[in-house]
Structures are given as C-alpha cells and as structure tokens.
C-alpha cells in the first residue's frame, strides 16, 4: 500500500523536476538582446557548476563584466532573500532547474 502510494508521488515529483527544468525569468528590465544573453549565460553557468553555486555565480559575474562592463553582481542559490540597488535596465532575476534562483544586476 505504502509503496503503491509512494510511487506515483515520486513520479510526480520527478515529473515536476523535469517540467520545471527550463529557465524562467521572474523579473527583468533588460532589453531583449541583453536578457537573452544573460539568461543563456546563467543557464550555462548553472549547468557547468551544478554543484557549486559560488563558481557559477563567479562565472556569471565575470562574463557579464566582460560583456557589458563592470560592475556586475550575481547571486545563485536555492533560498535567499535580498534587497539590492541596481542600475535601471540591468537586472535579471530568474529561476532555473526548478530549484535555483539566480539574480544578476549591475551597480557600479
């Protein structure tokens, strides 16, 4: 009984993991081009450093610095609250993989 009940639950959990794997932009005021680029970068970083949020964040930050000028800040994590000041048109807050939140913003 318990096993039978547990299986579909697991499947469901697995299902939502699969369903929720795509990047979801929660909030962004970037222009189209920049947003796409930043989003792809975040996806790449999170996939590359799936187990190390710090390096992922570093990669995002450094790439953004290179591409769009300093100074960028990036936070990658599964749970955090934040209050930031960012330059207008330079903010991306997105979820990825169903469990990670990434916020990237510029403020120099």
């Amino acid at each position: 009984m318990t096993e039978a009940a547990g299986e579909p639950k697991k499947e469901e959990a697995h299902d939502f993991r699969r369903l929720h794997s795509y990047p979801l932009i929660r909030h962004s005021d970037m222009n189209e081009e920049m947003r796409t680029e930043a989003m792809e970068l975040c996806v790449t970083a999170c996939e590359k450093f799936a187990t190390n949020n710090e390096t992922a964040a570093r990669m995002v930050k450094e790439s953004m610095d290179k591409k769009f000028g300093s100074s960028w800040h990036a936070v990658v994590g599964e749970g955090f609250g934040f209050e930031i000041t960012h330059e207008v048109k330079n903010l991306l807050y997105m979820f990825f993989g169903g469990e990670k939140a990434i916020i990237v913003w510029k403020c120099s």
């Binding site: 005021d29 934040f82 960012h86 207008v88 979820f95 939140a101 916020i103």
Partner: peptide, 15 residues
Amino acid sequence: PPRVNFSSTANQWEI
C-alpha cells in the same frame, strides 16, 4: 545611470 531598488525572496516554494 538611474538606479532602482529591487527586493524579493527566493526559496523553493516560491520557485
């Protein structure tokens, strides 16, 4: 450049 504040919370259920 103009600046804006932004704040939110990221946790599993929000995501």
